[in-house]
């Protein structure tokens, strides 16, 4: 039952996708908001490297531009904005785990396997693309949902959304590397706008409650 040996290209690409997934796991359990943001920055770095790698291998010049924007925006600017926000808020640690770390990780593992099995069953097979990474990307998306669900502080939830976008980026690199540049730029612009909005709302929330926990947001019901 020896598994087929993947090509060097897809081996490396798949591995980077798995690193993105692993950093998602790490965000899930990281206790400090600051370390979550740094993990996000690291994750974005991996996505950027993956973009460069695929650009070099497939000779898609547009991807270099995407990688450059991704480097500036996701690796540097967005983490810097959120870190600055955190510094202003002067909150180090938000007790926000709704369930234990072990249960979170176990559920995430199950969810990831589910994602991979489902995508594996779709037969997205292609000789030139590391299609296994698509399953991993879906797993990243689902685990980012778990991050938003299981952690009840604004930073985790915002980082959950940003890393969801990283998961989608991996997917787009894997199966849609030729996406027109204008569209990619629009995506990134959107992400930046979203970050600003998240930032504004975090600031408003903190100004109002002196806390970054979302447990206080339970007024509206019915």
């Amino acid at each position: 039952m020896a598994a087929l040996v993947p090509s060097t290209f897809s081996g490396i690409a798949d591995f980077m996708a798995i690193v993105v997934l692993l950093s998602e796991f790490a965000m899930l359990r990281a206790p400090l908001s600051r370390s979550q943001i740094k993990l996000y920055s690291f994750q974005s770095m991996v996505v950027t490297v993956l973009a460069i790698f695929i650009a070099a291998d497939r000779h898609i010049d547009g991807l270099y531009a995407v990688a450059a924007i991704s480097l500036i925006l996701k690796v540097v600017v967005i983490p810097a904005i959120v870190l600055r926000l955190l510094r202003d808020a002067k909150v180090e640690l938000v007790a926000s785990n709704r369930i234990g770390v072990a249960s979170m990780v176990l559920i995430s593992i199950l969810v990831s396997i589910f994602a991979m099995v489902v995508i594996d069953g779709l037969y997205v097979h292609s000789k030139s693309l590391p299609t296994a990474a698509l399953g991993v990307a879906v797993a990243v998306v689902l685990v980012s949902f778990l991050l938003v669900i299981f952690r009840s502080d604004v930073v985790s939830q915002a980082v959950g959304f940003f890393s969801l976008e990283n998961g989608v980026s991996v997917a787009s690199l894997v199966v849609a590397a030729g996406l027109p540049l204008i569209v990619e730029v629009a995506f990134f612009f959107d992400l930046l706008v979203a970050v600003v909005v998240f930032g504004v709302l975090m600031r408003v929330h903190h100004g109002r409650t002196q806390s970054l926990s979302t447990d206080l947001l339970d007024q509206l019901k019915g």
């Binding site: 879906v138 998306v141 980012s144 949902f145 938003v148 604004v154 939830q157 915002a158 959950g160 959304f161 969801l164 976008e165 989608v168 997917a171 787009s172 199966v175 849609a176 996406l179 995506f187 979203a194 909005v197 998240f198 709302l201 408003v204 929330h205 109002r208 979302t214 947001l217 339970d218 007024q219 509206l220």
Partner: peptide, 26 residues
Amino acid sequence: TEASWKYVLIASMGLGIALFATILLY
């Protein structure tokens, strides 16, 4: 504030899924 946070978070996550759909369609 609460409504806006819920809205932007849930809608953005939803649109994340929509973006995935766009990628798949591509």
